[in-house]
Write a protein that binds this DNA or RNA. Structure first.
Length: 346
DNA sequence: TATGCGTGGGC
DNA sequence: TGCCCAAGCAT
């Protein structure tokens, strides 16, 4: 598509954005100076996570660690606990690692170019482009799931994802302006969240409907095309609640893998069939509660039997945590659910 | 390119 | 209810 025939998307989109932009705690108001730390933190929190979930967590986080330097000086344990419940815990480890690299090697400031950002842990193509555009005003082609959807519809790109990424990015490049690139990126995302939604898009309200190939064809919901997903397998396991006095035994999970680096209740192997008391953390008079914990992860679902026992013996692994302060332990959701079951049934 | 990695809301 | 989806990254 040569320049003469390019449709000007940026002008009506930015005009729409100036009238409808959302007021979000990490977003500088018109005339305010953007804070790269806040932009970066918001982008990481928002990866695969909704604005409604992130908003209060962002406020709490920035109150506790207002700057790069504050975060770089924090301990890994407290950072992981502060992330509990947000999911994708590698994000928290990478966030801290990047903050420490910035403090040690970049004079306490985020680098302001895409390639330099891309080299930091936790920065992929999307986040590097988004921070370069939003925090530093650089022209960058910012493609997230919203932009994929909007662009796939604008140009009626019918290649199934993920192969569609390349043509979508090329098309996004043709409509990205040289100025206000950060606003343009945020406008595309606001449009995707409010107007160009996955189901029942509000095309009558869309500032780009005159230029949209999918809307012209009457089939906006058909885009983007996706390959069918594999069914999620179902697994079983056992989770151990070992109590000594008023405290329960917690472990820290290995850094890599599922729920990596997070505090947890001990669990046995997770497999096709219930393993019951395999891998119990102690010899004890275990009792299996009649209500299991059910939980869905991205790629499998699981039923966990809850085994409960009391002991007087010390344990050489893990930590004994007061049961009445368990909400301060920073447990991932599956273990917080288990604690609820024990409270009700044990 | 495919897979592993959480969680909560919408329908 | 169960499935879909979301401001992706690492390997």
């Amino acid at each position: 598509m040569d320049a003469k025939h390019r449709i000007d998307i940026a002008t009506p989109l930015l005009d729409w954005y100036d009238r409808h932009r959302r007021d979000l705690p990490w977003r500088a108001k018109p005339g305010e100076t953007v804070d790269p730390y806040r932009v970066w933190l918001s982008e990481v929190m928002l990866q695969q996570t909704t604005v409604a979930t992130v908003r209060p967590r962002f406020t709490d986080w920035t109150r506790r660690w207002p700057t790069f330097a504050d975060l770089a000086a924090a301990g890994e344990g407290e950072v992981m606990a502060a992330w509990a419940g947000l999911g994708y815990y590698a994000r928290a480890r990478n966030l801290l690692a990047a903050a420490r690299m910035i403090a040690a090697e970049h004079g306490g400031r985020l680098p302001d170019t895409e390639p330099a950002l891309r080299a930091l842990p936790g920065f992929g193509d999307y986040t590097a482009a988004a921070v370069a555009a939003i925090a530093f005003g650089r022209r960058a082609v910012v493609v997230d799931a919203n932009v994929e959807r909007v662009v796939a519809r604008l140009f009626a790109i019918d290649v199934p994802l993920p192969a569609a990424r390349k043509p979508i990015r090329a098309a996004a490049d043709t409509i990205t302006p040289a100025v206000r690139a950060g606003d343009f990126a945020q406008a595309m995302m606001d449009l995707g969240a409010a107007i160009c939604t996955p189901k029942r898009p509000r095309c009558l309200l869309c500032p780009l409907n005159h230029a949209c190939a999918a809307q012209a064809a009457g089939t906006p919901e058909a885009y983007p095309v996706r390959k069918p997903k594999a069914a999620r397998p179902h697994r079983h396991g056992t989770l151990f609640w070992l109590q000594r006095g008023d405290s329960v035994l917690l472990e820290r999970r290995p850094d890599k893998g599922l729920l990596g680096g997070m505090r947890a209740l001990p669990t046995g192997p997770w497999s096709e069939r219930p393993p019951l008391l395999a891998d119990a953390p102690a010899d004890a008079d275990w009792r299996i509660l009649d209500e299991p914990v059910t939980h869905g992860f991205t790629h499998f679902t699981i039923d966990l039997a809850v085994a409960v026992a009391h002991t007087g013996a010390a344990s050489n692994k893990g930590e004994w945590w007061p049961v009445d302060r368990l909400d301060e332990a920073g447990l991932p959701t599956v273990f917080a659910k288990a604690a609820d079951v024990v409270r009700r049934r044990a």
